[in-house]
């Protein structure tokens, strides 16, 4: 290779690195450093007296976490909300996408209508549903007795509260599933579906053999993104119940917020945050492994 080419390629690499460097520095400063600092905090004890002081505390915070009944309660609440909400959102989303795709009259209007809840902030959704669920002045409990049904303590009954929160999440985020799955559906070549129809495939076989398998990549993305989001749920719960009654609706993030920022126990708050990070990481890896395995089986 001529010398000039080597030099220009070297210059090209150097120049490339120089261009990337600011982005790398910003990433390190804004993402990696706080991440590592929080991890470090989870092994420390924080004191602000005489300036910020962090003393190494070993596994103290982690041992406290594993012996804390509120941690296990928050973890099980969060996982339960994530599993039920995402499953229902996916099934509902898929059903509505198939309906919209069949060219139902006014489907454009419904498409816009379905997306509206997703555009609201979770805080606004929380307040709206808090009014809807109000035991004495809310419209839901106003209608139930007219139908001969008893009024329900939607946000005050320990056995019901999580399902009320799940309901609000489904209401708000099913449109997200519709959005992703609709895009997936649009990417299926129409010729493929036409060919199957010509070959006499029924609607169910069309769905089972062609549409659903081809929607799997979009489904994986939608389910994974929603699962990660729901595992971090905090805003709606904060407004709807504050984690109550008792701690029956306290999520991991709310638990971390209460201990880390309300009680200002930063080290323990960081420990809770990292346990949530670990949970999300484990759930994501398991989910990706499972879906990869199922894709391999379907290819075989």
């Amino acid at each position: 290779m001529p010398m000039t080419n080597i030099l220009s390629s070297f210059r090209g690499k150097k120049a490339g690195r120089a261009f990337i460097l600011p982005a790398v520095i910003i990433l390190l400063l804004l993402t990696i450093f706080p991440f590592l600092f929080s991890l470090f905090l989870s092994f420390g004890k924080v004191s602000f007296l005489g300036g910020l002081q962090i003393h190494f505390a070993g596994l103290k915070n982690w041992l406290r976490l594993f012996n804390d009944e509120r941690f296990y309660n928050a973890l099980s609440n969060t996982v339960l909300i994530a599993v039920i909400a995402v499953a229902i959102e996916y099934v509902l989303g898929l059903g509505l996408v198939l309906l919209l795709n069949r060219g139902v009259k006014g489907s454009t209007f419904f498409r816009v209508l379905f997306f509206l809840p997703m555009m609201l902030t979770p805080i606004a959704v929380g307040y709206m549903w808090r009014m809807m669920f109000n035991p004495t002045r809310g419209p839901i409990n106003h209608v139930l007795p007219l139908l001969g049904l008893p009024a329900v303590g939607w946000l005050t009954e320990p056995k019901i509260v999580l399902y009320s929160i799940i309901l609000t999440d489904i209401w708000q985020w099913t449109p997200f599933m519709i959005l992703i799955l609709f895009a997936g559906l649009q990417s299926i070549p129409p010729a493929l579906l036409e060919a199957a129809k010509v070959d006499g495939a029924s609607g169910w076989r069309l769905f089972k053999e062609i549409i659903f398998p081809l929607l799997i990549p979009a489904s994986i993305a939608a389910i994974l993104l929603r699962t990660i989001e729901v595992l971090k749920i905090v805003d709606k719960i904060y407004i709807l119940t504050g984690g109550g009654p008792g701690i029956y609706s306290e999520s991991m993030t709310l638990f971390g917020y209460n201990l880390g920022l309300r009680a200002f126990d930063l080290a323990y708050g960081a420990t809770i945050a990292f346990s949530l990070f670990a949970t999300i990481l484990v759930v994501s890896i398991i989910f990706l492994l499972m879906t990869r395995r199922s894709q391999e089986i379907s290819l075989e």
Partner: peptide, 11 residues
């Protein structure tokens, strides 16, 4: 607060 809430909720 957390303990009071648990008592009020019957836990």
């Amino acid at each position: 607060d957390a303990q009071l809430a648990m008592a009020l909720a019957g836990a």
